[in-house]
Amino acid sequence: MHTQTLPPAAIAQPTPQSLVLSGTWTAAGLQAGMLQQLDALQPAAGDAFQVDAAQVAALDSAGAWVLQKLLLRLRSQGGAVDLQGLGAPFSRLLDFVAQQVADQARKPLPPPAPQPGVLESVGRSTVEAAEQAVALLGFIGETAVALARCAVQPRRFRWRSVLVNIRIAGFDALPIVGLLAFLLGIVVAYQSADQLRQYGANIFIVDIVGLSMLREFAPLIAAIIVAGRSGSAYAAQIGTMVVTEEVDALRTLGIAPVELLVLPKLIALVVALPLLTVFADVLSVLGGMVMARAQLDVGFAEFLDRFVKAVSATSYMVGVGKAPVFAAIIAVVGCFQGFRTRGGAESVGRQTTRSVVQSIFLVIVADALFSIIFSVLDL
Rank of each mutant, 00 (worst) to 15 (best):
H2V: 11
H2K: 06
A9C: 07
I11G: 13
I11H: 11
P14L: 09
P16R: 12
S18C: 05
S18M: 03
V20L: 12
S22P: 04
A27I: 13
G29P: 04
A32L: 02
L35D: 12
L38V: 15
D39N: 09
P43K: 08
A44F: 00
A45D: 08
V51L: 12
A62Q: 13
W65C: 10
W65L: 14
L67V: 12
L67A: 12
Q68N: 15
Q68R: 14
K69G: 15
L71Q: 12
L72N: 15
L72E: 14
L74D: 13
A80D: 14
A80S: 12
Q84R: 13
L86C: 07
A88M: 06
S91H: 09
L93Y: 04
L94V: 07
D95S: 13
D95E: 14
V97D: 04
V97I: 14
V97E: 05
A102L: 10
A102N: 09
Q104A: 15
V118M: 12
S121F: 00
V122E: 03
S125Y: 02
A133H: 06
A135E: 11
A135V: 00
L137M: 13
T143R: 09
C150T: 08
V152L: 13
R158E: 05
W159I: 15
W159G: 13
S161G: 09
P175Q: 02
I176T: 05
V177D: 01
L179F: 06
A181K: 04
F182E: 04
L184R: 01
A189S: 10
S192P: 02
S192G: 15
S192Q: 03
A193G: 03
Q195F: 06
R197N: 11
Q198V: 11
A201I: 08
V206H: 05
D207M: 01
G210Y: 01
M213R: 01
P219Q: 01
A222E: 01
S230V: 08
S230P: 04
A233R: 11
Q237C: 05
Q237V: 07
T240Y: 02
T240I: 04
V247D: 00
L250F: 03
V258W: 10
V262D: 13
P264H: 11
A268G: 12
L269V: 11
L269K: 09
V271C: 08
A272N: 01
L275P: 00
L276I: 02
A280H: 01
L283K: 00
V285S: 02
A294V: 07
Q295L: 11
D297Q: 14
V298K: 06
G299I: 10
G299R: 10
F300G: 03
V308L: 00
S312K: 06
I330V: 15
V332P: 10
V332C: 14
V332R: 09
V333C: 10
Q337I: 05
F339V: 05
R342W: 03
R342P: 01
G343Y: 11
G343I: 12
V348T: 04
V348P: 06
T352A: 03
T353G: 04
S359T: 10
F361A: 14
L362F: 15
I364H: 06
A368K: 06
S371N: 07
L377M: 14
D378E: 06
L379T: 07
